[in-house]
């Protein structure tokens, strides 16, 4: 069996978990193996019911009210326990914060390696994976050992796809054995997202600013354009390091991954660590004084020129059309 750790919200599996399940199902069918899932939390049963569409035949619901709030080590311990009783060949999860964390705990508890952010798996002996390095700007082919193979699947690398024929999900409760030490780290409070704010990760339009913006004040030009397009402002690391903008606006390997319909990159050179954060954009428009900047090979469209004249001209043109 292949077991997938499934994250869910409001009784439905998260998109990244559906990506991982799609990946796992293809792997299972190549191996002639079955697909199982493990879920935590009070809404696990509802979420599990929907997994037949993705080919899951067995869902393990971890049954312990102490685990209703996220507790990384305890969730990992539960997964390690489930591995002990079900002996899967492969355990996988989405390459999300929780996916990486829960699998790393379970793998470490079983003294087994784990490969993070895989995009391909070649099962067999040796068992090989292709995984992302540098946030996805470089790939590594690696050998993965262990009696059970633990791996996470890079987000956005697989399209979620339902199985041709849905399966019936057999649901089983699993009671983990936990120690006090496993329960030391738990979410004790949550802060809800700000309402009514366009989040950078979900924005349909992102106006990006880099070193070329030149200082904190000039960001008002980008804010204005983003506002007219109901979008969000994103920035490069040079901008956050200089303190011009908060890190929550940084796009890239150590910032946010964005996937807008259009990314308007102003005064950004296009370093690989920035590109991995914005390559999921449907269209990239670069505004840059340098025709040879690396961003030009990533952008579909470009305007050559000083952003301080181009960006205000764009806002003015949008206003003019909206008024007419």
């Amino acid at each position: 069996m292949i077991i997938t750790f499934v994250e869910h919200d409001g009784g439905r599996a998260d998109r990244s978990s559906l990506e991982a399940l799609t990946f796992a199902r293809r792997l299972a069918s190549g191996l002639g193996d079955s697909l199982g899932a493990v879920l935590f939390g009070p809404e696990a049963a509802a979420a599990a019911a929907g997994l037949g569409a993705y080919g899951v035949t067995e869902a393990h619901l971890v049954d312990d009210s102490r685990l209703d709030a996220y507790a990384p080590a305890a969730w990992g311990r539960s997964l390690a326990g489930l591995v002990g009783t079900t002996s899967p060949a492969i355990v996988l999860a989405a390459g999300t914060d929780r996916g990486q964390e829960v699998l790393a705990y379970a793998a470490a508890m079983l003294d087994t390696p784990m490969a993070a952010n895989c995009i391909e798996v070649r099962p067999g002996e040796p068992f090989e994976v292709t995984r992302q390095r540098w946030g996805g700007s470089l790939l590594e082919e690696a050998r993965l050992d262990g009696a059970v193979r633990f791996l996470t699947i890079a987000e956005h690398a697989t399209q979620p796809e339902e199985a041709v024929a849905p399966s019936t999900v057999r649901v089983a409760a699993f009671s983990p054995t936990l120690s006090e030490a496993d329960l030391r780290v738990r979410v004790v409070a949550r802060v809800a997202p700000e309402v009514g704010k366009v989040s950078l990760a979900d924005a349909r339009v992102v106006v990006g600013g880099g070193r070329g913006v030149g200082g904190a004040e000039a960001f008002s030009e980008l804010e204005e354009l983003a506002g007219l397009l109901h979008g969000a402002v994103g920035v490069s690391r040079v901008v956050t390091s200089a303190g011009w903008r908060p890190h929550s606006q940084q796009v890239g390997q150590t910032g946010t991954r964005i996937a807008p319909d259009i990314y308007i990159a102003c005064g950004i050179s296009g370093a690989i660590q920035h590109i991995v954060g914005c390559k999921a954009a449907k269209t990239i428009l670069a505004i840059n004084t340098d025709r040879e900047a690396p961003i030009m090979s990533r952008a579909a469209y470009a305007v050559i020129g000083d952003l301080h004249s181009v960006v205000p001209a764009l806002s003015a043109e949008i206003r003019r059309r909206q008024a007419s």
């Binding site: 790939l139 050998r143 050992d145 025709r291 030009m296 579909a300 470009a302 305007v303 050559i304």
Partner: peptide, 20 residues
């Protein structure tokens, strides 16, 4: 592990940029 075998650059979808 995992034990590195080799590195590889991802396939690039380098289109031509249209200058507007």
């Amino acid at each position: 592990g995992p034990e590195k075998i080799r590195l590889r650059l991802p396939a690039e979808t380098e289109g031509r940029v249209e200058i507007l």
